[in-house]
């Protein structure tokens, strides 16, 4: 198993798309965190509460909503590029036990995206702190180290789980177009539709889909629901894990059952 993971690791870093996706992820994190943080600071200035402070990692948490699509692209390509080129046959010749191949991919994507989440989040936090400390933004930005660290670790976990979920969907769908559609519907389309549908049941379901579950886990205060997600962080993590496990199970079922 260690050898298979090593092979997947080598494959991940030997294509340029990986680097592009990581660069895109970082850029999206920094830019959306700055934009969101700037908006928060401006609001605080308008309200004129001089003493109000917000942790700069808060806009970073909100930025994940936008930046996650770069990581979806990366995680998706890990499997869909193999089907597109046909190299999956080569991979399965080397590792004929299919569950082992999927597990190896998941075990590579998971830590890589965790680290990518923490690092890109840290960069976005640093950039946010530097920029939002400028006088123009009224000096509302704060850098409480404990809270920031916890936020960044949670961003890493969120990214890692969304990536593995995408890998599961990609294994089930095989094509990039199909994977993107399903993942987008899961992450954005369905929850927003349900949220707009507005019935209390619809909202409850929407809030338990991966994006809002992730935001609950990261204790986001500023998101598309307009406030904190109304259940505890632990429950958010649990839902996120459920979605990830379900996607992986679906991927495994297809992988096992269908011809390569």
């Amino acid at each position: 198993m260690r050898q298979v993971i090593g092979a997947e690791w080598a494959k991940l870093w030997s294509v340029r798309s990986t680097w592009w996706c990581l660069a895109g992820l970082t850029a999206l994190m920094v830019l959306s965190a700055l934009a969101l943080g700037g908006a928060t600071a401006t609001d605080l200035m308008r309200e004129g509460v001089r003493s109000a402070r917000f942790a700069v990692s808060e806009p970073v948490v909100s930025a994940t909503t936008f930046a996650q699509f770069a990581l979806v692209a990366l995680a998706m390509l890990v499997i869909t590029s193999e089907y597109a080129s046909g190299s999956v046959r080569s991979t399965l010749q080397a590792t004929p036990i299919r569950g082992r191949m999927l597990a190896a991919k998941a075990l590579v994507v998971l830590p890589v995206m965790f680290v990518a989440g923490v690092l890109s989040g840290a960069l976005a936090t640093a950039a946010g702190y530097v920029v939002l400390s400028l006088d123009t933004f009224g000096g509302h930005a704060a850098l409480p180290l404990g809270e920031v660290t916890l936020d960044l670790l949670r961003v890493g976990v969120f990214f890692a789980l969304v990536a593995v979920m995408t890998l599961g969907v990609g294994t089930a769908m095989r094509s990039a177009a199909g994977t993107l559609t399903v993942v987008f519907m899961l992450l954005m389309g369905l929850p927003l539709m349900l949220l707009m549908a507005g019935g209390p049941a619809a909202v409850e379901v929407s809030l338990r889909m991966p994006l809002f579950a992730g935001l609950a886990f990261m204790e986001s205060t500023d998101n598309m629901t307009g406030g904190p997600i109304p259940y505890p962080a632990g429950e958010g993590l649990a839902w996120l894990l459920v979605w990830t496990a379900a996607a992986l199970a679906a991927g495994y079922a297809v992988l096992r059952g269908r011809d390569a």
């Binding site: 080598a10 294509v15 080569s90």
Partner: peptide, 22 residues
């Protein structure tokens, strides 16, 4: 199928990964 390789990966990298897995 000789064409069934990731177009963006070098042959060398492909072989290295295959060797490692086995």
């Amino acid at each position: 199928d000789a064409r069934a390789l990731h177009p963006g990966r070098s042959g060398h990298a492909h072989l290295v990964a295959m060797a490692r897995s086995n």
